[in-house]
Amino acid sequence: MNDVKQMVETILCKLVGQSLVGAARAADMLTLQLGELRQRQTPLGRTVETGEWALHIQCAWRIGNAQGIYTGRSDYWQPPEAVESDAVIESWNPELGNLRDSRMSAWIAQRQTSPAKVQSVSSDCFAGIRLHFDDGYTLEVFSDSSSDEDWRLIAWDGDEHLVVIGGKPEW
């Protein structure tokens, strides 16, 4: 087995059984919260509620099931609803609303009372990952750069912090 694949899967297997409890965005970066919600202090002293684990994704990704792609990174650059005028698209700002945000919000809200749990995980030789959820959906993350940060997994208790840059894991 490829060393990168094995190393990433060894860390990711800690997510199996964890609930997806939140999703947000910082610019075009997807942030997912997994595990039980807990409060923690930010470096600036603010109290925030996070999952036990955070997955920050800055490369290509998609969420889908057997019916197709539900949403993905490129939906950030699409208006939240269909528009028929080029003028609307030219003046539209993704920071004020986009298809990715509206679809992710709906996807998380549908699971509010019974969050999806990570059922299995897998990786490839470029540290691309798949998280398979118990509701039939899969998150696929594609490391797609030779030098930029692709994704990172953070355990808020301080035990783990894996960063993947250019398809290579760094500790």
Rank of each mutant, 00 (worst) to 15 (best):
T31N: 06
K14V: 12
A24R: 02
Q33T: 05
T47Y: 01
G45T: 03
T47N: 07
T31E: 03
R25M: 14
W53R: 09
Q39S: 12
L37V: 10
G22R: 00
S19Q: 13
G51S: 07
A23W: 00
Q41H: 08
T50G: 04
T50Q: 05
L20C: 09
G17A: 12
L37W: 08
A23C: 08
L32R: 02
L20S: 11
L20I: 07
A24H: 04
E36Q: 12
V16S: 13
Q41V: 10
E36H: 09
A24C: 12
G45P: 02
V16H: 08
A23R: 00
R25G: 10
V21Y: 06
T42E: 07
G35E: 05
R40C: 13
D28S: 09
A27F: 02
T31C: 06
E52P: 06
T31S: 07
G35S: 07
A54W: 05
D28A: 07
L20K: 02
G35C: 02
Q18L: 13
G22C: 02
R46G: 10
P43E: 10
S19P: 11
A23E: 02
W53S: 11
E49Y: 04
P43G: 08
T31I: 07
G51D: 06
Q33I: 00
P43L: 04
A26Q: 07
R38V: 09
W53F: 11
G22T: 05
T31W: 00
S19I: 00
G17F: 11
E36V: 11
Q39N: 10
A27H: 03
L44S: 09
Q33H: 13
T31D: 01
L37E: 15
E49W: 03
A27K: 00
R25S: 15
L44N: 08
S19A: 15
T50F: 01
R38P: 07
R40M: 14
C13H: 11
R25E: 12
S19K: 02
V21T: 15
V48L: 04
L20F: 09
A54D: 10
L37Q: 14
G22L: 01
V48H: 06
A27L: 02
G17Q: 06
K14R: 15
R25D: 05
L30S: 08
G17V: 12
G45E: 02
L20H: 09
M29T: 14
L30K: 00
A24S: 15
E49V: 15
L32D: 10
D28E: 12
S19F: 03
Q39L: 03
P43W: 04
G45D: 05
S19E: 14
D28N: 11
T47A: 11
G17H: 08
S19H: 08
L37D: 13
K14Q: 15
G22K: 01
L32P: 06
G51M: 01
G35W: 00
V16E: 14
A54F: 05
L32Q: 06
T31F: 01
K14F: 08
C13I: 14
L32E: 07
A54Q: 15
G45C: 03
G22E: 04
L34N: 08
G51P: 03
A26N: 09
G22Q: 04
Q33W: 01
G22W: 00
L37S: 14
G22Y: 01
W53K: 10
A23Y: 01
A27T: 05
W53Q: 11
A24W: 00
R40N: 10
V48Y: 05
Q18G: 12
M29S: 11
A54M: 12
A54K: 06
A26G: 11
P43A: 10
G45S: 04
